[in-house]
Amino acid sequence: MDYYLLTVCIYVVVGIIACWGLNLQFGETGVLNFAAVLFVAVGAYTASLFSLGHPTPASYQQYFWGTSLPWPLPWLAAGVAGGALGLLVGLLVLRRLRGDYQAMVLLVVSTMGTYLVSADPGLLNGSIGLASIPAPFKSELHTGQVGYELFYLGLSVVTALIIFEALRRINASPLGRVLRAVRENEQAAEAVGHNVAATKLLVMVVGGAVAALAGAIEVQFIGAWAPAGWTYPETFGLFAAVIVGGRGNLGGVAVGAFLVQGLFLEGTVLLPDFGNPDVIGAVQWMSLATLILLFLWFRPQGVIPERQRKFREGQAGPLRGLLPAQAFARVGRGQQGA
């Protein structure tokens, strides 16, 4: 029981980090990143390749390249890979396409990734996926399974706290206000001289790196990663968490990730056994869908809504250079309703 509870806790922390990455894109800047799960997957594969070691012909799994580096490096490599993917996808999709096209093309890109990995068994072991991915310090620490899980949970929580602080600072900085200006009214932000395309590209890179890190943490814990685990509906699970929790609020998003990723997607195993696994899976997804609908109906702003930011007149610092965008943003919000 302790063992399972700890596992769910680690999944929740991973979910929270992934949702924070998405929140930077969707919650703060309004980029509908329908390829969110692709970034998690790229992080997971990168961390795997950087910890599995060189592939041998005799091995039961095939992958195109690999090395074995000590702990923080696979995670950092995953972050870099996620950022690079964000740059690539952002350059491809964000610069010229309209918002709804962007969303749909990102959905297509995510599915392309799944198909590509499944199609070529030599790339990342195809649809069977990679396995036996080593967990950091597992052989050095002689703690037993529960002790190791506690250690790994600590490691993930510390990472999550670092990411939280970084994202909090971005949100509080002038850059954070530019992000929200782009979200509330793109034309107005453009008109006062902000580069909307560059801003979106930036959040794709940073948010992508954060999501990839979540993938790295997950994969080094569970030790296996396959295309079936990151099909495009998984992205909707992440969106659900951000919306239920409260888009634009890091604490709220964390609560949403706990509710959706923990309670609904993992926590059902804690329920008493009531029938075959297919029924449980179906009931799980249907109750998640109902939860999303109820939240959008009764509490569209989320469990913990975005903090209303207030600036006093004559307070030079936080307002410098951003007054018109803020003013437009307010007007834009008024027109859109919720």
Partner: peptide
């Protein structure tokens, strides 16, 4: 009518897709 935004409506249809598919 409740003023759900474009994003919100997308998410409503996502939830609907899950409901129908698993039903």
């Amino acid at each position: 009518r409740r003023g759900t935004t474009f994003f919100g409506m997308v998410v409503v249809t996502i939830a609907l897709a899950l409901l129908v598919e698993y039903a």
